[in-house]
Design a protein around this nucleic acid. Structure first.
Length: 576
DNA sequence: GCCGTTTTCGGCCCGACTGTTTTCAGTCG
């Protein structure tokens, strides 16, 4: 069984939890949590790296000990240390730590006094009223535990998609602005970094003297629970289950706080470390210097970066994934922006499973200020979507030619989202494909092939001289369907050799490629098409999510083919 | 458990809020 990076991370997280409950050295625990994160975010499979004999200790945060443990996990699928731990501490105890307000210390006390080892037993004790009598616990804690356990069975706390977070955040910001004492307002956190999913919202504000914004905040209509309410910080839970923090900040600290709460944590730590070397203390209140901790910055984010000798780093890059080193060398990318996009290369119409006509799509694209739009309906294999056969596609080609004769200010590109069949051949004959301006090729069926077969299948498809863009390269649906097993690195290499491109599908349910693969593609010199896969005129708006993701993947204007003028794009699409 | 051009030993981020504690520990981010 292949060991995924996430498997390794899971084991390290569990060890960290168990050590936490045992009361081990907190820095040792942090080392495990840190390692879990490192492995999870690694652009390559650790198992492959070990097979190739790479030295894992060269990765910051992994020493000899952890490297050996990773090796053990890769070779045996498990870790002896974990089994040992489970002999001392029941393995289910860490589940209790998932609960709001229960940390390692309290879990340990519950275990030692009441013998509680899992959520069911905890629920039992809470119902019998035994929790409140334990030292350090009380009536309120018991009620909270009971309430949360009743919930736990129905809804598991899941990160929500960026598009949902955006909707919620906009509503909240609008509501908060109704309080006229609010001056500045920003939504920080992973939302501001435009991560594809968001775990909670961090809203920062500055207010006029005597503001009652906290009172206003906890009266928001969408709230199910107020977890805490203070002068400078309050936390609420929305009906959707999303947690929202509101922080009130002094003007002078706003930039420091914005930086601090935008994260990522790893980025902040790295910035702070540079600060420490320069004798600075950086926290959410500002940048401070010397023994007397004189404030020397923090009103704006720029000031914070400036004090550590860095240029401004865009939020999307703040993952401690090389952005700090790049900033130090003056080599930060000039990230792509929405205005750079000249057209959309993946869209559907009524001819298959879209909801609008070709003409309607063309008009909408023109309204977006685009120069071109590729009409890419499904091919016949995708029966569910009434996919086009060669004859129907020929009819559509004619229709588009005619329409192009009448349209002004927008050019329709004749194309198709052609299915890559199980054996890697394309779903339509070359005779019809060669009549098109470009092809967008994708896998819809047989997603469960093993890694090698799936990769070969796609490589074979790329051998077809009419193959241009690989659409939604991993097939994942965020929170719904895992990516299929496929070696993206090999595919990128093949795309480079053959003059093909890969899509970054901007649909917020897909966002496929991930940021890390975008970065990999860029480094390998493979250009990317950021496309919406629109099934209606409204879906063309998804482009912004594609741009967010592209920015997270360090892409610049030049890395993306649909930033090109039509004639340059046409030249790019001609395979040698 | 990791890390080091100030250190191979002794650091490793810390402040706000809650609950139960009468002066603070635990949790969270």
């Amino acid at each position: 069984m292949p060991i995924h990076n996430s498997d390794i991370a899971k084991i390290f997280k569990k060890i960290a939890d168990m050590l936490d409950i045992e009361g081990a050295n907190p820095f040792r625990i942090r080392a495990y949590r840190n390692a879990a994160r490192i492995v999870e975010d690694m652009p390559k499979r650790v198992a492959d790296m070990i097979r190739k004999g790479d030295d894992l200790t060269e990765i910051p945060g992994l020493g000899k000990d952890l490297a050996d443990k990773i090796k053990e996990i890769v070779e045996t699928g498990t870790l002896f240390q974990l089994k040992e731990l489970e002999n001392r501490v029941p393995g289910e105890l860490n589940q209790l730590m998932r609960m709001e307000g229960l940390g390692p210390k309290k879990v340990k006390v519950l275990y030692q006094t009441l013998g509680v080892t899992n959520p069911d037993e905890l629920k039992q004790m809470a119902r019998e009223g035994k929790i409140k009598d334990v030292e350090g616990f009380g009536q309120k804690t018991q009620a909270k535990i009971l309430e949360e356990l009743e919930h736990l069975t129905t809804e598991t706390k899941q990160r929500i998609k960026l598009i949902s977070a955006e909707e919620i955040a906009e509503g909240l910001v609008e509501y908060l602005k109704k309080d006229k004492s609010v001056k500045k307002i920003d939504v920080a956190g992973s939302f501001r970094r435009r991560k594809e999913t968001v775990g909670d919202l961090d809203i920062l504000v500055t207010v006029k003297r005597g503001s009652a914004v906290m009172d206003h905040f906890v009266k928001y209509e969408d709230i199910t629970k107020v977890i805490s309410k203070g002068q400078t910080r309050s936390t609420i839970v929305l009906k959707s289950g999303l947690h929202v923090d509101l922080r009130v900040l002094p003007q002078v600290s706003y930039g420091a706080a914005l930086h601090y709460f935008t994260g990522s944590k790893a980025h902040n730590i790295a910035v702070r470390k540079i600060g420490v070397k320069k004798g600075l203390k950086i926290n959410e209140y500002g940048v401070f210097k010397g023994k007397d901790e004189k404030r020397i910055g923090g009103k704006t984010e720029e000031e914070v970066f400036d004090q550590v000798g860095l240029p401004f780093i865009e939020p999307e890059l703040r993952e401690n994934a090389g952005e700090i080193e790049a900033a130090q060398k003056g080599q930060l990318p000039e990230l792509i922006s929405p205005e750079d996009i000249r057209g959309d290369l993946h869209s559907h119409t009524k001819a298959t499973d879209g909801r609008n006509t070709i003409k309607e799509m063309a008009d909408a694209a023109k309204d977006h200020g685009y120069d071109y739009l590729a009409i890419t309906d499904h091919s016949k294999r995708v029966r569910m979507a009434k996919g086009l056969d060669a004859k129907k596609l020929a009819d559509q080609i004619k229709a588009i030619d005619q329409l192009n004769g009448k349209l002004t200010g927008i050019r329709l590109l004749k194309s198709i989202e052609v299915d890559i069949l199980k054996d890697g051949s394309l779903d339509l004959p070359d005779e019809i494909l060669k009549e098109l301006d470009l092809t967008v090729c994708s896998v819809h069926y047989h997603q469960n092939l093993d890694r090698e077969k799936q990769t070969k299948r796609i490589l074979r498809a790329m051998d077809n001289p009419y193959f241009n863009i690989l659409a939604h390269p991993t097939g994942r649906l965020i929170n719904e369907r895992a990516p299929y097993e496929v070696n993206i690195e090999k595919i990128l290499k093949a795309a480079k050799e053959r003059g093909c491109f890969v899509e970054l599908n901007a649909n917020p349910d897909r966002l496929d490629l991930t940021a890390r693969y975008c970065k990999m593609a860029k480094n390998m010199g493979v250009k990317i098409a950021v496309s919406t896969d629109a099934h209606s005129v409204n879906d063309l708006d998804f482009m912004r999510f594609g741009i967010y993701q592209a920015r997270r993947g360090w892409l610049e204007k030049d890395d993306v083919i649909n930033t090109r003028q039509l004639k340059d794009l046409t030249a790019l699409l001609k395979r040698k």
